[in-house]
Design a protein around this nucleic acid. Structure first.
Length: 422
RNA sequence: GGAGAGAUGGCCGAGCUGGUCGAAGGUGCAUGACUGGAAAUCAUGUGUAGGGGAAACUCUACCUGGGGUUCGAAUCCCCAUCUCUCCGCCA
């Protein structure tokens, strides 16, 4: 969420920035409400100050054994007036807050302006798409032929967009998770976190999934629990409401979790294969940074995510998302897109974002530069490091061989205990 | 799931027979004095958010969260959450 004072002082900056996202938002009613808020607040606080001092008078009179009835009646009337003001104030503040929670983040100046993904900017490429001397298969065909992915039974026991991994398929999924975690914790300096897969609505509010994107998530009926759509939610909220010390920053966490997404708006898209599932695995990287370092941290975070693809030998490209294609909470996002021969195209496998203080303000995550300094908001960042299911799909498709087997990438052989899936 | 106890400032901890309590005391931290330097000691300061003010400063709110009683609530009542103990159950 944006800073109320900032919006009040720079409404045009906000409107312009949001226009870049294709968001035609008027702040007129918002600013009017904000003016009303301060008028009521000043009035209510003056009356409260009066009530406090008169109540003290009552106390003194009573202690002196004198009659305080007249004064008490006066304060009672004052109290009624305050109640009316407080009620109106709450209404105004609620709607102001509601506005703020629904305003997306302001894109960073380096973000290309455009209405959708057609304006995204390719930053760099790694590797060459493999050339096959046979007709390459989709990963779902490879998986079924090798009997390591069972889509039909996934549908039987759960429904569409659920898949069962079997044998070396299950082992491959687990190997990829372990490889990612080992690399990030041992080589890139992240601390491993294993978070809860369900969180409360307050955490969802903190990272920006709520209130706007309720439909995208699974909610446990009769409770305040949501299945996490990404480990970003529990891990970023780890420090919610805390004041960190500047020397602790940057804090770098790597977390494996299952991720659950309702995919409400994606009916009919990517229905086959592992690309779009209701449940998938992901290793997420999360950083808490000093404001002045967050863009350097975004670059290194993205590089850390790229490293896993490089070590796996998977061709990919890095893309800077345009203002119209970015997520709600993000100020700048790089997507990594892996080459999938079955699609004959690149597909998103990681998304690395700097949220600046947008999430930190919602989740109230702050730090102090020195002992008696005022707390400031940290900058939060996160990125997939990377999506596991799509990695497995990419390995199957890029490493398939003419005889139907799949070579195991060099770095995974120790995890797999074999060098080919046949 | 049943019974009971509890939640106070960075931390510990008093207050909880309602008014002088933003809250004793300790500790931590900061600044200064002392010292060749440090320790110890002494002095002073030290929560957050919001409103007003050029500033000094001042007002309001916050003692887990939400309601209520009252002229007035950290203190009384109700609800929720969490923690601890005992019992039950369970991986």
């Amino acid at each position: 969420m944006l800073d109320l004072k900032f919006v009040r002082a720079n409404p045009q900056v906000v409107v312009d920035a949001l226009a870049k996202r294709g968001n035609k938002l008027s702040l007129d009613s918002f600013l009017q409400l904000e003016t009303e808020r301060r008028v009521i607040l000043t009035d209510a606080e003056a009356k409260k100050a009066q009530r406090n001092s008169l109540s003290k008078e009552v106390g003194k009179l009573k202690q002196a054994g004198q009659d305080a009835e007249a004064l008490m009646a006066q304060v009672r009337a004052l109290g009624d007036a305050i109640a009316v003001l407080d009620n109106r104030l709450k209404e105004v503040e609620d709607s102001l807050n509601d506005c703020l929670l629904n305003i997306p983040n302001i894109p960073h100046e380096s973000v290309p302006v455009g209405k959708d993904d057609s304006a995204n900017q390719e930053i760099r490429r790694f590797g060459q798409p493999p050339v096959f001397d046979f007709e390459p298969l989709n990963h779902w065909d490879i998986g079924e032929q090798l009997d390591i992915l069972d889509f039909a039974r996934g549908v039987k026991i759960s429904g569409a967009r659920f898949t069962v991994y079997k044998g070396l398929g299950a082992r491959l999924e687990r190997s990829v998770v372990n490889f990612f975690l080992d690399l990030h914790t041992q080589k890139h300096g992240y601390k491993e976190i294993f978070p809860p897969f369900m969180v409360n609505s307050n955490s969802m509010l903190g990272t920006g999934q709520l209130p706007k994107f309720k439909e995208d998530m699974f909610h446990i009926e009769g409770t305040d629990y949501y299945l996490i759509p990404t480990a970003e939610v529990p891990v970023t909220n780890l420090h919610g409401g805390e004041i960190l010390e500047a020397e602790q920053l940057p804090i770098k966490y790597a977390a494996y979790s299952a991720c659950f997404r309702a995919e409400a708006g994606a009916a009919g898209r990517d229905t086959r294969g592992l690309i779009r599932q209701h449940q998938f695995n992901k290793v997420e990287l999360v950083k808490f940074s000093l404001p002045e370092n967050s863009y350097a941290e975004l670059e290194s975070l993205t590089n850390d995510a790229e490293d896993v693809l490089q070590k796996l030998g998977l061709p990919y490209r890095a893309v800077c998302l345009s203002s119209g294609d970015m997520g709600f909470s993000s100020a700048k996002t790089y997507d990594l897109e892996v080459w999938l021969p079955g699609f004959n195209n690149y597909r998103e496998i990681s998304s690395c974002s700097n949220f600046e203080d947008f999430q930190a303000r919602r989740a109230n995550i702050r730090f102090r530069r020195s002992n008696n300094a005022k707390p400031e908001y940290v900058h939060t960042l996160n990125g997939s490091g990377v999506a596991v299911g799509r990695t497995v799909a990419a390995i199957l498709e890029n490493y398939q061989q003419a005889d139907g087997s799949v070579k195991v990438p060099e770095v995974l052989i120790p995890y797999m205990g074999c060098d080919v899936i046949a």
